[in-house]
Design a protein around this nucleic acid. Structure first.
Ligand SMILES: [Zn+2]
Ligand SMILES: [Zn+2]
Ligand SMILES: [Zn+2]
Ligand SMILES: [Zn+2]
Lengths: 163, 163
DNA sequence: TTCATAATGTTATATTATAACGTAACCAAA
DNA sequence: TTTGGTTACGTTATAATATAACATTATGAA
């Protein structure tokens, strides 16, 4: 079960330096192969998110940008645009219930991203299981499920006819 | 399959007047049996949400309150507090990806609430199936799934030990 | 070069949510 | 029926998140 090896990475000890470099290289390759530009801004935002397996708010990222580059005064739209690009490419995910963003631990995965979010320590683990396996996996991690949200967005039958 | 009859109510024709009255009566009974107060403000907010099976933003609800009661000028905290109460009682749900609130079509249900959200017409259908049945049900509704989010909040093993 | 496009930068503002503190309603015990 | 504790409500101000609108710069092909 390949996914298992990556699934709980946020809760495991691992060589995060390597993890980071691997994911960054994957991102480079992904964009290159699709002839998309992982510009320095976009890469910079991705690197910030790859700094940990924790979610960050857009304004946290903004603050980090402004901390590093003392000269410039970056404004919100710059961050949101980079985040939009990275989201579209599946390189990061948005945690809806937290208004936060997190680097994907398995870019290119097909399943819907699934997260275990600790309301206490705020850690987030990305799982890569099928839905029916989810609760079992949460249980096997000793994670006490509190509240789960499933949101499926798409186009309803009516709109498919209309559109 | 009891849930099936209610699940896609937003996409079905039904006698919504009765639906509304039924759900309001359920809410009354729920609160009464738990010795909780479904005050007039809370009831008023619930009634507004029961006006349709569509999600509404907190500020939409606020506007509706201020439209009805021309005299007073209601402020956001009043709405958010009523929403918090209704959420806690499971009488409404929060659609995280929309920052919106929707009346629950089956208060007292045990499963996690699950939604189909149309990005086109913005309709939201609440399902009441097990996870593994979800995609099949979406498919049977002719709903083209686009993006699904599963967010499980709880307490991780570490925090359970610490706390 | 020249043009078209994509990406970035800038300013202002919209949208969503909460902090902090005061008042009123409710209810049980004295 | 007062008293005091609690819960809910009201009010003001502000925090946190996100986008609109428009100007500028970089990129790459014709
Ligand atoms: Zn790592
Ligand atoms: Zn992922
Ligand atoms: Zn109805
Ligand atoms: Zn529900």
């Amino acid at each position: 079960m390949k996914s298992k090896t990556l699934s709980n990475i946020a809760f495991r000890r691992h060589d995060h330096r390597r993890c980071q470099q691997f994911l960054l290289a994957e991102a480079d390759q992904h964009c290159h192969s699709l002839n998309l530009r992982l510009t320095s801004r976009r890469r910079q935002v991705l690197e910030i998110l790859l700094g940990s397996h924790q979610p960050m708010g857009a304004y946290d990222i903004l603050a980090e940008l402004n901390r590093v580059d003392r000269a410039e005064r970056i404004a919100p739209p710059i961050v949101y645009r980079a985040l939009d690009f990275l989201l579209q490419q599946g390189l990061i995910h948005r945690i809806e219930s937290r208004n936060a963003f997190i680097s994907c631990v398995q870019p290119g995965h097909q399943c819907a991203a699934q997260f275990l979010i600790c309301r206490d320590c705020e850690q987030v683990a990305e799982l890569e299981t099928h839905e029916q396996e989810l609760l079992a996996e949460a249980d096997s991690l000793g994670f006490a499920v509190d509240h789960s949200i499933i949101e499926i967005t798409g186009v309803c039958a009516q709109c498919q006819k209309d559109g």
